[in-house]
């Protein structure tokens, strides 16, 4: 069976993929749909949805909520994607080394990993952004720093179980080097769990980014969903739409990514294939 046939069997995963495509399209065409700067004061403040030319209403300063959501999608997806890529890279390298070599290498790397895991991740992220200046880089770094230990643990486990397999011993007996065994022989065999964990991590990254922006720790020059919610929370009772629509955007995106992650898990994990 092709990969798509396997993936398609999980209906909700297909729905998730559909929503995710919509969010990507929205991000890609943001400047076409809303050519103006989302921070621009576009009209009468606190206009309800559908009035004064605002499709989803305007906020306390008269900024267009719909435009903010479209441009905010870019920020959220970019930060989440970048942060996940960095986290997966660090996690895979450290976890791979720890799992492959074992012994004291493993001990040292895993104790370091545990050190990161003992601090609650959101508090840790706030701390990092607060120490550095709030900017896209610092947010990406903060999210990556709190996310990599999970990947490292996962990759370590996979490497440990694979390094003693007979096909790896066969590689040793022809004199293959360690680096080549790790990259060309073991890594391809543990890609599926990494992809699944990574896709779910994107969802968490979006939530952390929104949380940081909500607390005012986002990049002040770039619109994001969390920032919009933060800006609207004081008027939650008089202008519900300012918070609600970015909130729905976050909800749908995170849900879609989780569904896709689950779908990937079902399709890539051969042991679960017979479960249906």
């Amino acid at each position: 069976m092709t990969f798509w046939q396997l993936y398609r069997r999980n209906r909700s995963a297909v729905l998730g993929l559909f929503i995710l495509f919509a969010v990507f399209a929205m991000a890609a065409f943001a400047s076409v749909l809303f050519p103006e700067d989302p921070f621009r004061l576009a009209g009468k403040p606190m206009s309800p949805p559908g009035e004064n030319g605002f499709f989803l209403g305007s906020d306390t300063l008269g900024r267009d909520v719909a435009s903010g959501i479209a441009h905010g999608a870019r920020t959220s997806l970019m930060i989440a994607g970048l942060a996940t890529a960095v986290a997966v890279f660090i996690g895979a390298v450290l976890g791979g080394l720890a799992g492959y070599y074992g012994g004291w290498t493993d001990d040292i790397l895993m104790r370091v990993t545990e050190m990161f895991q003992t601090i609650p991740s959101f508090v840790f992220a706030i701390l990092i952004v607060a120490i550095m200046k709030p900017s896209i880089q610092s947010i990406v770094i903060a999210i990556a720093v709190v996310s990599w230990p999970a990947v490292a643990r996962l990759v370590r486990g996979e490497f440990i179980s694979l390094r003693n397999r007979e096909f790896i011993q066969a590689c040793h007996s022809v004199g293959m080097g360690d680096l080549r065994i790790m990259l060309a022989e073991i890594l391809p065999n543990c890609l599926s769990p990494i992809i699944v964990a990574g896709s779910l991590m994107v969802a968490t990254a979006i939530l952390i980014e929104s949380g940081l922006s909500f607390l005012g720790l986002g990049d002040p020059n770039i619109i994001s969903w969390g920032f919009q919610i933060g800006a609207g929370r004081t008027v939650l009772r008089s202008a519900w739409w300012v918070c609600t629509f970015p909130g729905i955007a976050i909800l749908l995106t995170v849900l879609a990514i989780n569904l896709v992650g689950e779908g990937l898990n079902d399709a890539l994990n051969p042991r679960l294939r017979e479960r249906t």
């Binding site: 397999r165 007979e166 096909f167 011993q169 066969a170 065999n189």
Partner: peptide
Amino acid sequence: FQDPFASLNP
């Protein structure tokens, strides 16, 4: 090797 299923990289 012994196990023909584990001794080849899938």
